[in-house]
C-alpha cells in the first residue's frame, strides 16, 4: 500500500470490554482538502449571488441611482467567485492524475465488479437503511465517486454557460473564448435559462451531500466528516484494502 498508514493502536472500548484495533489512513491530501473548502465557499457564493441576479430582492431603496451600487456588487462577487471556482476546479482535475489513489480518476468510475456491487450496497444502506455487507471503500465509496463525477460534469456545464454569458460583458481573453457558445445554444436567453436552471442542481447536491456526509459519518463510524478537514480516516486492521 502506497499510502502512509500509521499503525497506531487505538483502543476502542465500546462496551467497556473487548478492544478493537483501528488504523489511521491519510486519505485526503492537502490539495484535495483545500480544493474542497475553496470550492464549497465559492459555490455557496455563486448560488446565492446567482439567485439574486435572477431574482433581485428589494434590498435598499435610495432615491437616486448614483447613491448605491449593490446589484453591481452582487454581480461582481458572482464573477470573482466564478474565477476562483474555475481555477480551483482545474487544479482538482490535474490532481486527479497525480494525487494519491483516493484522489485519482480511477476512484470515480465503477470499472470493477466489486465497485458496482458497492454501489448497490450503498444505495440500499442510504435509502433503505439496511446494513452494509462487506467493507466499504476507504476513500470515496463507489456511488459517491460516480456522483462526484456527475457533479464535475455539471461544473463544466455551468462554467461553459457562465463564461458564455460573461463574454458579452467582458473583453478579457478567458470569457472571449466562449463567445461561440451563445449562437450554438440558440441565443443568450437560452444560455441564461440553462445557467439558471442548473443553480437548482447545485442546491440539491449541496443539501444531499452535506446530509450524507453526516449520515455516513454515523453509519461507518470512522471519521468521515473530520476526514475532509484533517485528512485522516480510520480503518479496522486487515480491512479496507
Amino acid at each position: 500500500m502506497s499510502t502512509p498508514g500509521i499503525g497506531v493502536k487505538d483502543v476502542f472500548t465500546a462496551n467497556g470490554s473487548a478492544p478493537v484495533e483501528y488504523r489511521r489512513i491519510y486519505v485526503w491530501e492537502l490539495p484535495v482538502r483545500a480544493y474542497h473548502w475553496i470550492n464549497a465557499i465559492a459555490l455557496v457564493a455563486l448560488c446565492v449571488t446567482g439567485y439574486l441576479i435572477g431574482a433581485p430582492i428589494r434590498l435598499f431603496n435610495a432615491p437616486e441611482a448614483y447613491e448605491q451600487y449593490w446589484f453591481g456588487w452582487v454581480r461582481f462577487i458572482h464573477f470573482a467567485a466564478a474565477y476562483v471556482y474555475v481555477f480551483n476546479f482545474l487544479a482538482r482535475l490535474y490532481w486527479g492524475f497525480v494525487g494519491n489513489k483516493y484522489a485519482r480518476w480511477s476512484a470515480f468510475f465503477p470499472l470493477k465488479k466489486s465497485q458496482r456491487q458497492e454501489i448497490v450496497d450503498v444505495i440500499k444502506a442510504d435509502v433503505l437503511e439496511t446494513k452494509m455487507h462487506g467493507p466499504i471503500s476507504t476513500g470515496h465509496n463507489a456511488l459517491a465517486g460516480l456522483i462526484y463525477f456527475g457533479t464535475f460534469l455539471a461544473f463544466v456545464f455551468q462554467t461553459i454557460t457562465g463564461f458564455a454569458l460573461y463574454s458579452s460583458m467582458s473583453s478579457s481573453w478567458l470569457p472571449r473564448m466562449f463567445t461561440w457558445i451563445v449562437p450554438l445554444m440558440g441565443g443568450e436567453f437560452a444560455v441564461r435559462f440553462w445557467h439558471h436552471l442548473f443553480l437548482w442542481f447545485f442546491v440539491t447536491f449541496i443539501i444531499v451531500h452535506i446530509y450524507l456526509a453526516f449520515y455516513h459519518d454515523y453509519i461507518e463510524g470512522r471519521g468521515t466528516v473530520s476526514s475532509i478537514i484533517g485528512g485522516w480516516k480510520f480503518d479496522r486492521e486487515n480491512r479496507g484494502k
Partner: peptide, 14 residues
Amino acid sequence: DTCYRRANYDAGLF
C-alpha cells in the same frame, strides 16, 4: 449595454 436606465440596474433600483 447602452440603455439609459442602466445606472438603475447597477444600483439595484427596479
